[in-house]
Every structure is written in structure tokens, then in C-alpha cells.
């Protein structure tokens, strides 16, 4: 006898479809969400790599210190700060972006601009990654310029150091000739108290007559400088003085060099602020505005003027 073969009933199909729908729809949501997160992470990683490349180029010797125009007035690179997007009004009142300028013996500004800009547009900077993703680039810079002819430690970048004084070697006779102080070593004269840890013996046996005899390497005093012992003492004290900003008490043993002394009135250190902005769902070129999907990455660093002079 033939065996009866039964198929699937309509009820089974309906129940199975309902179960499948109840499971697949959320699963599809999870999968789509996961793919979107992957895309966001991928864009972030690409942005980070691109930003790091740009910042490394800016810090390298291939971008001379003098080629960066912090105020963006130079249009040598084909763009000017006035045309590029500026900061928000609440951030330094719409500070313009920095640009590059041509310098003698340096690379062309147009070539340097290529570090930040692939599209050659002058109203925004756009870099395109190897994957074809677009990122808007923002570059701000500022120099720590010299404030005046004298070091102003609260207003400008200065270099602090402790000079290396020494005690004249006339110690066999225990006759400290600095400052015209008493000779006896037993009195523990103030020179010991001033410089107990920094005495270096130098082969000078002539009595010192100028401040530079005491402190090798110091700038030469003005012509005609012949201080009395008392004045010399005060001058040494003044030269060594740094004022504690809180107590206004003098801090001995510290001196400050001004950038102007190094031939850097325009400053030797520059702050670099680099930003990248992108939208994972679209490209800038398509003219789509930024939305809640917009992501940003910001890096800050500093560049010193290390070129030989």
C-alpha cells in the first residue's frame, strides 16, 4: 500500500514565518548597527592616521618654522586665512586659519599647502584619504613672540637657568676676595652660603675685577663698568634675582635669557592646532551639510625654531 505523504500545514507555515520575522528583524537591526559602527570606527581610524601624518609633516624640518604664517595673511600658498573658515565667535573671536608663505631658500608655500589641502579650493581645505574619504582640515597657529627688550617671565617665553659661578682659588690663604669680605675661613662668610654647591675651581689667580671674572660665560658688562665692592655685591644679587610670583621674594641662582638675545624677536616656539572634520555618511564634495553624524578630531603640538642661524 502506498504510504500517504503529508506536507507542511498552513498553520505551521504561519507560525514559522512569525517566529522567523520576530527573530530576523532584530537580528538584522543588530547586524546593520554593527556595520554602521564599523564604518564609524573605520572613518575615525583613517582620520587619526591622516591627522597624525599631517602633524608629523608640520613638525618636521621639511616645514621651516619661518614658512608658517600664523595670522593667515599670506596667500602665497593659494589660500588666505580670510577666505577659509575661522574659529567660532566664542573662540578668539573668529581667529583666521594659518597659512604658508614663501621664504628664501625654503620650499614653495604652494607645496606646503598640499600638506593640508588636496582640492585646491580656496574656501576650505579638504584632504582625501587613500580610500577616497574626504576630511575637512583646519589649521591654527600662534607664536610665542618676544615681549620686549628685557625678560618678562610672566609675559613671554624665557629660558631659565642657574649660572655656574665659582670661587676664586685663593683659598690657601683663605682670603676670599670676592665682595671684599673678611679673609678668615672660620667666619663662614656669606660666599659659602650663597654658592655652596656650585663652586668650581678655575685656574685664575689674578684677583677678579669684573663681574665676568666671577661668572664665566656671562654677557660682558658695559664699558667703563668699575663697581665698588658694595655695588658689585648688589649687581650680582640683581643679576641672579628671579622674583617668586607669589611672595615677590627673590629667588637666587636663577637667571633668564630673553629670546631677543638669541636673535629671535619674532619668537622661537609656535603652537600648532590641527582639526579634521568629516561625516561618515557622505562626502564634503556632495555639499551635504553637517549633522549629528559629524565627527571631529583635534591635535595640539608645538614646533621650535631649530634652524641654524
Amino acid at each position: 500500500m502506498k504510504e500517504l505523504r503529508r506536507g507542511v500545514t498552513l498553520i505551521e507555515i504561519l507560525i514559522a514565518t512569525a517566529i522567523l520575522a520576530a527573530v530576523v528583524i532584530p537580528v538584522a537591526t543588530f547586524i546593520i548597527g554593527g556595520m554602521r559602527r564599523t564604518e564609524i570606527s573605520k572613518h575615525s581610524a583613517i582620520a587619526l592616521a591622516l591627522g597624525a601624518n599631517i602633524m608629523d609633516s608640520l613638525l618636521s624640518a621639511s616645514v621651516p618654522f619661518g614658512s608658517i604664517d600664523p595670522k593667515g595673511t599670506s596667500g602665497d600658498g593659494g589660500v588666505s586665512g580670510g577666505a577659509l573658515p575661522k574659529t567660532l565667535p566664542s573662540v578668539a573671536n573668529k581667529r583666521p586659519q594659518a597659512t604658508f608663505k614663501n621664504t628664501t631658500g625654503g620650499p614653495p608655500a604652494a607645496k606646503l599647502e598640499g600638506i593640508l589641502n588636496d582640492r585646491k579650493k580656496n574656501d576650505t581645505r579638504v584632504k582625501v584619504s587613500e580610500e577616497g574619504l574626504e576630511f575637512e582640515v583646519f589649521f591654527f597657529a600662534g607664536v610665542y613672540a618676544d615681549d620686549g627688550t628685557k625678560p618678562a617671565i610672566a609675559k613671554e617665553l624665557t629660558f631659565c637657568y642657574v649660572p655656574n659661578p665659582y670661587v676664586p682659588p685663593d683659598a690657601v690663604a683663605a682670603n676670599h676676595k670676592i665682595l671684599g669680605l673678611p679673609a678668615s675661613p672660620a667666619t663662614k662668610n656669606p660666599i659659602d652660603k650663597l654658592f655652596p654647591y656650585t663652586r668650581v675651581h678655575e685656574a685664575r689667580i689674578n684677583p677678579p675685577t669684573a663681574i665676568t671674572d666671577y661668572f664665566p660665560g656671562w654677557p660682558k658688562p658695559p664699558a667703563g663698568y668699575k663697581p665698588s665692592p658694595g655695588q658689585l655685591k648688589d649687581d650680582i644679587k640683581k643679576a641672579f634675582q628671579e622674583f617668586d610670583t607669589k611672595s615677590q621674594d627673590p629667588v637666587f641662582f636663577a637667571s633668564f635669557q630673553d629670546q631677543r638675545d638669541f636673535g629671535r624677536p619674532n619668537g622661537g616656539l609656535i603652537k600648532l592646532v590641527l582639526g579634521l572634520r568629516w561625516n561618515p555618511n557622505t562626502n564634503i564634495n556632495q555639499g551635504v551639510g553637517y549633522s549629528k553624524n559629524t565627527r571631529e578630531l583635534w591635535l595640539v603640538s608645538f614646533k621650535g625654531d631649530l634652524a641654524q642661524k
Binding site: 578668539a92 581667529r95 610672566a154 603652537k271 595640539v300
Partner: peptide, 27 residues
């Protein structure tokens, strides 16, 4: 307010960037 090199997203008078500057983060 009394330092030379500063990195902060608070509004401040930055010696390099000018009055009212804000860095992107505190560092």
C-alpha cells in the same frame, strides 16, 4: 592666567593665540 604655555579648553588669554582663545582640550 599666569603661565606662558597653556593647553586648556577654558577661555583664556593665550600668549600665542590671543585673547579669548580656547584649545580643543585640556592637556
Amino acid at each position: 592666567d599666569d603661565s606662558i604655555v597653556v593647553v586648556t579648553s577654558e577661555p583664556h588669554n593665550d600668549i600665542a593665540m590671543g585673547a579669548g582663545w580656547r584649545d580643543p582640550f585640556f592637556g
